[in-house]
Amino acid sequence: MSLDIQNSEDLPLLQVSNTTKLYGGRIGCKDVSFDLYPGEVLAIVGESGSGKTTLLNCLATRLTPTSGSVNYRNRMGQMRNLYEMSEAERRMLMRTDWGFVHQHPADGLRMTVSAGANVGERLMAVGARHYGNIRDTATDWLGRVEIAEDRIDDDPRAFSGGMRQRLQIARNLVTAPRLVFMDEPTGGLDVSVQARLLDLLRGLVADLGLSVIIVTHDLAVARLLSHRILVMRHGHVIESGLTDQVLDDPQESYTQLLVSSILQP
């Protein structure tokens, strides 16, 4: 395979082939294949239990698939099978090139250290050793996720749900990742808080040119954020395509049902 760095913009960032995860005899997700391109936002939708989280975790190396492969194009332009990398390489990816935003902020934050340290952790993990610079970067990122500068030394236990989620996002984005995984990032929030977070996310994703794979059961979230969509049912992808096309003109009867139930007032 030739490595053409110039053209890597046109090449997939992630290539997923026949990814299957079985829990014993039960299907988590089955034979999922797709490509994700740089700057693309892909939503994985479907009702609860359809396999969205399982798939996301298989892609993010948080859960080893039973079969299939997931390839990632690194910054050198090389396509690497994630499951053939060493654990050290994978963990390095996870704290530099990638981000993972959990539904429950407590799963993605260190609740007992300050907001500043939460944001600074990844910088320190990749070798930042200047306190003043780390703090300046953390201050900047808190601003970008609309957390007041004077909260920098408070720990997240003192934050509202929306603030915690914004902090989790800042903590992930501080190393300028290329690919961010999100599992129901607006899930536990009040509707008005959700709307603000979605706005913020949309702005950040566009500004940073991020590639995102976002799991949501909320089609409105998919509509607002994503370019493309995968619809899952019983662990299978049953429909995929451009978000607007799929949501405006669903082909599968299950998708039609999903869309109509959501769009009803």
Binding site: R91, A117, E121, R122, M124, A125, V126
Partner: peptide, 11 residues
């Protein structure tokens, strides 16, 4: 992976 040690000192 020793970034955490500096998190402690940062705090």
């Amino acid at each position: 992976e020793y970034g955490l040690m500096h998190v402690k000192l940062y705090e």
